[in-house]
Simulated scan of single mutants.
Amino acid sequence: MSPFWKIFGLGAVAVLIFDTVASLASNGLGFPYGYAAIGSVLIYAVVGYFAFRRGGLIWVVGAAVLVALVDATLGLYISGQIGPGALPTDRFSIPVIATVLVSAFIFSVLSALVGSALARVLHGHRSVNNAYMSVNVERQSTQAPLAPFMSRVQMETVLHTYGTVAVAISSDSPPMVLGIANSIGAELHLNGEVFLDSGKGDWLGFYDWLRSTSGQVIGVRIWLDTKLPRPLFKCQGVELIKADQQLLIFFGQERQFDESSSGDQDFCSNQLFLSKDRFALTFNGPGPT
């Protein structure tokens, strides 16, 4: 089972147990059932926290909405059977049900975003330098190294062929662009080398493909919204503009790009992976020329 479905499953079980306990407590102790919303906020915040840590904002919204769907259907049924959450039969209509579902979705996402914000703050203060130095060193030593050089033609072919690409960088070799044929998971296999997910999620910031005046892609720029390990900034082809928090990775010697054609502002499939002595950043490819 993937981490996303584990987070959703645990969240769904948590809200159902909470609905049951809150309903019984409301009947037994006589406190207003609406007060239980505080507990629901906490559950969705926890879901948002772990979803963000594992997969970013897309996971946060997806997990929150799915848990809310369980909460607004099976959870509402359970509380209704016990007593305090019962919906009056004269109000049982499609518009009312739709309103309940939409309200549940909005409530769940907002609560989950609180948890993701906490994860973002805590995550920003985490140092990944130790992870960078200790990622599966023993297994890496048995892997064949990546090719030391890629021609401009090879890079252009990969960029415009694959829907998702990885840019591999290190301090001792030029950047390489490699296609990703399968869905991205906790591990990324690039030419026999294993890269592990850094835990930064799938949101590093908006990014642009840098194009020359002739239309060739010569690099990529990320408008950073996440702290990255310091050794990354010492890799070949990497430039950091601190004033705007721009991370630029140039694939070759050419540094002049056309700003008017380099404003993609894409934001999907953007993750950081680590190997023993390399970094790999994933992106949506720029598409066909």
Rank of each mutant, 00 (worst) to 15 (best):
K234I: 05
T157D: 06
P286T: 08
A37W: 15
V21Q: 03
D90H: 14
D244R: 11
K227E: 13
N129Y: 13
W223L: 11
S171I: 11
G28Y: 14
A181T: 10
A280D: 04
A72H: 05
L57Y: 15
G285V: 14
S275L: 08
A98Y: 14
V128M: 12
F149E: 09
Y35F: 15
W59A: 03
Q154T: 13
G85M: 05
L87A: 06
E193H: 06
V217P: 00
L69H: 06
I184F: 05
V158Q: 05
V13G: 06
I58E: 02
S134M: 15
Q81I: 07
V60G: 02
F279Q: 00
I78W: 04
A280R: 02
L228M: 14
S151T: 15
L188N: 02
A37P: 03
G80R: 10
P174V: 10
F52T: 00
G263S: 14
V96E: 02
V194E: 01
T157W: 08
M155A: 12
R278F: 10
K227A: 12
F107A: 08
S171F: 08
I38W: 12
D258S: 08
Q256E: 10
K242C: 09
F105T: 04
V114R: 02
M133L: 14
V153K: 13
L247C: 07
S151Q: 03
G219M: 08
L118H: 00
G75N: 05
M150T: 07
L74R: 02
I169N: 00
G30L: 12
M1L: 11
S103I: 07
A98N: 07
T73C: 03
L76C: 05
Q236G: 07
G48A: 09
I218T: 03
G285K: 11
V46G: 02
S103M: 10
P231R: 10
G205V: 10
N191E: 15
F250Y: 15
Y49R: 03
L74V: 14
D277F: 11
V153S: 10
V109Y: 04
V114G: 01
P286G: 05
A186Y: 03
V61F: 13
G48I: 09
Y33E: 03
G215K: 10
V60N: 01
C268S: 12
F273Y: 13
V121T: 07
L274G: 03
D225Y: 14
P84R: 05
N130F: 15
D225N: 13
E239I: 14
F50M: 06
L196I: 12
V100N: 03
V21N: 01
Q256Y: 11
F107Q: 04
I180K: 00
L224A: 04
S183Q: 15
L240E: 01
V15G: 01
N136H: 08
V238W: 04
K276Q: 14
V114P: 02
V238S: 04
I97E: 01
I169Y: 02
